[in-house]
Amino acid sequence: MDYGYDLVVVGGGVLGTFHAYHALKNGLKVALIEKDRTPQGATVRNFGQVVPSGMNAKWQAYGRESLRIYQEIQETFDISVRQEGSVYFASDEEEVQLLEELHKINQHNQYASQLLTKAKCLQMYNGLRNDYVKAGLFFPQELMVEPRVMIHRLHSYLKAVGLDLFPHKTVVECNRLSQGIEVYFSDGTSLSSAKVIICNGSEFKTLYPQLFNESDLEVAKIQMMQTKPQGKYVLPSSILTGLSIRRYEAFSECPSYAAIKAKEDMDSPVKKWGVHILFKQATDSSVIIGDSHKYADADRIDELSMDLNMDIDNYILHEAKNIIDLPTYEIQYRWSGMYSQCKTADIYQHTIEKDIHIVTGIGGKGMTASAGFAKANINNIFNLQHA
């Protein structure tokens, strides 16, 4: 299996796949390696919300480029993209103030957003509780995808335009040759490549354990659930609520943010479990609700069991019912997901022997920002900034 590639990407999740996508777009010969039959990690265990509005200025730029890339692919091949926008609901005057300040920031950044009065919010969103909402901020350009569908369709699309995809391949070694890198698999086969990009934390840990242990990576475990189908009920837009306003990085750039955060109760369940309330309607009319955040250092991931804490789920449901009256809150699925992030940086990047690039720990930004970030990173790695 000595094909000779310009690039081997290790990790078939959204971050690795979009690195492969942009390398292909630049005419490179690319192999994408996935250790499972299909991706099983954070890429398929999230809401599927593409929300640059929640990111700081640097990452919003990547997210906005991602919006363009998703739409560009969707025009050619259905990867489940829906442009239904995102809305933030404020539940008190402090959150209203943050929405107004973020609206001004986005006007300056030329990113479309619309302030909504309480009456307009109640008119647009059936079931939204009058005793919860005070105002809203709507971002019309933002997207939804179905995470358990999107990555598989994206792989199919890339295979059709020249990607070599290798599922069920576990990388056990990367060695520099006189020219390029040899990537060895547990089944005894190998591939040679000019460059390698490792976008999966487990392969990073296997291949470079000392470097992994020295990193500042941590893992976040999140809990989500999905209701039974809601019949004819329609919940337009991705819904982000007051707790999201108090959590997302974008709001940290607002003048009032620090003073508002300083007054929060650090002993509340919200802080204890890292809860903020999101809603997204799936294509079968069911509604995905979440989520919570529990953290551990990446080398102590065993502390984050896959068990579900029902106290957390019950708290999320209690809070959700105070926001939107859905026809049913009967739950058909519950699950947890994990993603890695850095404690002191916005993403982990390290280069070994010039041509082996570790790129992981994008955190909760993956579905939104990977497409745009990967474009810039491929241009940098292959010196394509002029492209």
Rank of each mutant, 00 (worst) to 15 (best):
I378C: 05
S178R: 13
T76N: 02
D311H: 04
Y3C: 08
A57M: 10
T38Q: 10
P236I: 12
I73C: 02
L217W: 06
S268G: 06
Q385V: 10
V270P: 06
I356K: 08
H103A: 13
D216M: 07
M150P: 03
G337W: 06
G136A: 09
E218Y: 08
T38F: 15
N109F: 10
N200Y: 03
I316A: 03
Y62N: 02
L122Q: 14
V219T: 13
F77L: 05
G63S: 02
A135W: 06
L115P: 00
P209Y: 06
I323Q: 04
Y257N: 01
I198V: 15
F89R: 08
Q349L: 12
N380L: 11
E101H: 09
S178D: 14
R129A: 08
T351I: 13
N175F: 05
M306Q: 14
V270R: 15
V234G: 00
G11A: 13
S86R: 03
G41A: 15
Y3N: 15
E249R: 10
T206H: 13
L115I: 15
F89M: 12
K159E: 07
L308H: 04
A258P: 01
Q349H: 11
T38A: 14
I239Y: 00
K29L: 07
F251H: 01
L177D: 12
I151F: 03
R82E: 07
L177A: 13
E218T: 06
K232R: 11
I181C: 11
S80R: 03
V10T: 11
V149C: 03
R334Y: 00
Q341C: 02
K120D: 15
A112D: 10
P167N: 07
T43H: 09
Q40A: 14
P39Y: 13
M310F: 02
P236M: 12
A258G: 00
D325Q: 14
D307S: 09
L278W: 03
R246E: 07
N377R: 11
T227S: 13
R64E: 07
Y315W: 04
V9H: 05
K58N: 06
T206F: 09
V81T: 02
Q281G: 06
Q230F: 01
D346R: 09
Y3S: 08
I277M: 05
S202Q: 14
L163K: 10
L24P: 11
N379L: 09
N130D: 15
G201F: 01
D78H: 02
D267L: 11
S286F: 00
D265M: 00
L191Q: 11
H22A: 05
E203G: 13
L217P: 09
Q141V: 05
R247Q: 10
S238Q: 10
